[in-house]
Write a protein that binds this DNA or RNA. Structure first.
Lengths: 213, 213
DNA sequence: GACTTTCTTGGACAACTGTCAAGAAAATCT
DNA sequence: AGATTTTCTTGACAGTTGTCCAAGAAAGTC
């Protein structure tokens, strides 16, 4: 067993020995605090000291609750995205017509782009790191999968309400709307006033196109 | 330069122009070398020393040709994207039918995803930095604009060849295909064998949907 | 109370970063 | 040829980084 492996098992042992609740609670607390800093600075420019400084703890404690920086950040983004996905399911649940679903969905994307823009850019930052570093890929693909399913629940429900089959795969549907959202995010953060309107318009125009003509 | 112009031009001008050329030439040479390293490591993990080490020069020379790291990197990406855009215009020029344009376009995207994947992830890395750092935005939006125009030349030509108007804006069209490409890139780099086939399929299915039904 | 375990601190460490400047080397000019 | 300008190297600088660790605080247990 190498020193590195020993360190890993030491951490996991500590986890299992302890009351998991308290441990998990503080983890979430630290992660929530870290999310503020991360969403502001991005992965590259955020240091553990910076995160600690914006929390009520010292920088040493981060290594008590997280193995390293990578584990901390992936945990943070997972935490956020898990909460994020649930919001859209409400739209599916309350939609009475295809048209209402369409406008609600477009509106929800525009709203979250405006209100949670800094959080979403952190997600894109993490996903981009996965293009370079293999250690990120597993978690990124997992989050990506939940987002794809979330979009597919919207799209397939839209198809049901329209009484018309969908003509693209779930992954294609996700990629299309993700592209629209990402472009809108860049433009919105660049203070282009039309960004959100264009996003709504793009989504409302695109969704019907996924149906059989 | 004609002989007449040469006669008018002063000697000192000719000298300084030659110096400018040499200067620009070495800039391009350093940037080309830097691109190899940057596309391998990404913006966050690439240091100027690393770039210099993979070139035939020392690290100090980079500051002789570039003001700082930001200028070097944006210059690098611009250099690459400028060359990149031209490739697609050939597809537009040689297309004889809407269907041929459609499959050629899908094939070109899949090919460049496979062959130049590491370069494209650098572009996405830079674009992502622009979400956080304002100093990147101007250049990123400029490159984004040239890509949007490139896509629009494809899409509008496709509309012309089909004899049918396009129903989405240039920016929406760009966002849609960019989303497809970005997803395919992540999957391809993650060794998912279907990535390229799905990209081709997604593009070939999406393009006709942009026409009036 | 004393003890053990869990948690937190703050400092030390070595490695790395972008930047810069002094001077060597090379190219160019006179 | 020597003088001058351009180009490049080298080493140093002041910060910052992730990581680790000894020591002490706090909490829990008896």
């Amino acid at each position: 067993m190498t020193l590195e492996e020993a360190a890993v098992t030491e951490v996991t042992d500590r986890i299992s020995r302890r009351q998991v609740d308290k441990f998990a609670e503080r983890r979430a607390q630290l992660a929530t605090s870290a999310l503020r800093t991360l969403s502001e600075l991005g992965y590259a420019r955020t240091s553990l000291r910076e995160i600690a400084q914006n929390s009520e703890f010292s920088h040493g404690v981060l290594h008590y609750y997280f193995r390293d920086k990578v584990e901390l950040i992936t945990y943070c983004v997972k935490l956020y995205k898990a909460e994020c996905v649930t919001r859209y399911d409400q739209i599916v649940a309350t939609a009475r017509s295809a048209d209402q679903l369409r406008t609600d969905f477009a509106q929800a994307l525009a709203t979250t782009c405006a209100e949670d823009g800094t959080m979403h850019r952190l997600w894109y930052d993490l996903r981009n790191q996965a293009l370079f570093e293999e250690s990120f890929r597993e978690d990124v693909l997992e989050i990506d999968q939940t987002l794809e399913l979330m979009i597919w629940r919207i799209v397939s429900t839209y198809g049901d309400l329209s009484g018309t089959p969908i003509t693209v795969s779930p992954s294609t549907a996700y990629a299309l709307f993700d592209g629209l959202f990402q472009q809108a995010l860049l433009r919105h953060l660049s203070d282009q006033p039309k960004a959100l309107d264009d996003l709504r318009d793009g989504v409302e125009r695109t969704l019907p196109k996924l149906l059989i003509p």
